[in-house]
Design a protein around this nucleic acid. Structure first.
Lengths: 181, 181
DNA sequence: CAACCTGTGTTCACTAATAAACAAATTGCG
DNA sequence: CGCAATTTGTTTATTAGTGAACACAGGTTG
């Protein structure tokens, strides 16, 4: 685990922040590399040191958040749903601008699918259809059911601009998971 | 006027912000170079690329703001006091954390003197004791009078946490300048 | 007293970021 | 349409930032 040069982190952070910032102003396709480099206060060439093009940049941006969520899953692997849910909702809270942009705006259906796929991948390991409340159900049905429900609730939370505190959201999600998994 | 490498601006900005940030938490003498480099997210050695030591850093920080104010004086040279004052108060507003720290806290008498000296230097050129309302007065007296008054009002504004909007402050200062210069 | 820790200031080899130039592709306007 | 302007992606030499090591100066503790 070689510690990476702090310059890399700083410029990538600046670039990603710039993209999120710009996406709240105009359509992703209308954003130029120059827009991004200007906003990030970074040389245009520097962007190409890290990304192939702006689509690769968006990909990696999404990817990095999915990976963070995956980390959270690992951290909370042996917690129950009530203890684990706040980890999620805290992360949503901390990265509000990103998720809000990706879920609450009509322009980015791409992320929704990506997010749903990730959730399905996670839940697949959790569900047991051989015993308990879900005995007899099809694994794919219950997984899809819970994952879709989760995305729906999270979307609602962002679209309505955090109508309840994240820990309350976590609590209620914990209850619903308990009931269905 | 060769445009400087943007890296220089970014790291200097980060370092200066870090110092201001830290000074609001503890005494300047208790701040270490490592504190600064950590807070600024910069290598410790990088600080020495720009500054001799932390005292030089504080000096240059103060100096840079005085120079900005000097620029503002030049810009507003042919404006009357009512048009020129907002330039000042806007700058105060924009750099609130710095001036508030330097004027509103007891710990930094150094800047007050520096600021007063600068104002005296500026006003000295403006005052005319050969004619008008100040005919017969001693140049040094009227200059000192107005400069001290200005510092006092600005201190009041910061100590009391911006009790009036900056443009209202500007308006009233304009009136007082008009009356005395 | 010695051993220890912390901060300072400097050096060094290495790496990432920079600005500028470039040809090629794309866009947009008259 | 055709021409101009802009954007893209790449390359280049140069520069700033990096982290690690170092000797040295206090200060603290046992």
């Amino acid at each position: 685990m070689s510690k990476t040069d702090r310059r890399i982190g700083k410029t990538q952070e600046a670039i990603k922040d710039a993209v999120i910032d710009l996406m709240s102003e105009k359509n992703f396709d209308d954003i130029t590399i120059r827009d991004i480099s200007d906003r990030a206060n970074v040389s245009r060439g520097t962007i190409y040191l890290h990304y192939l093009d702006k689509y690769d940049l968006l990909d990696k941006l999404v990817e990095s958040h999915i990976n963070e969520l995956r980390e959270i899953c690992i951290m909370g692997a042996d917690l129950d749903y009530f203890s684990g849910s706040p980890l999620w909702t805290e992360y949503f809270e901390q990265n509000y601008s990103f998720f809000s942009l990706m879920l609450a705006s009509k322009g980015a259906p791409y992320f929704r699918t990506r997010f749903l796929d990730f959730l399905i991948e996670q839940f697949k390991q959790e569900v047991d259809v051989t015993k308990g409340k879900n005995k007899g159900l099809t694994n794919e049905v219950i997984v899809r059911f819970v994952a879709s429900a989760f995305v729906g609730v999270v979307e609602w939370w962002f679209i309505n601009d955090k109508p309840i505190p994240h820990h309350v959201l976590a609590e209620q999600l914990g209850l619903l998971f308990e009931r269905n998994l």
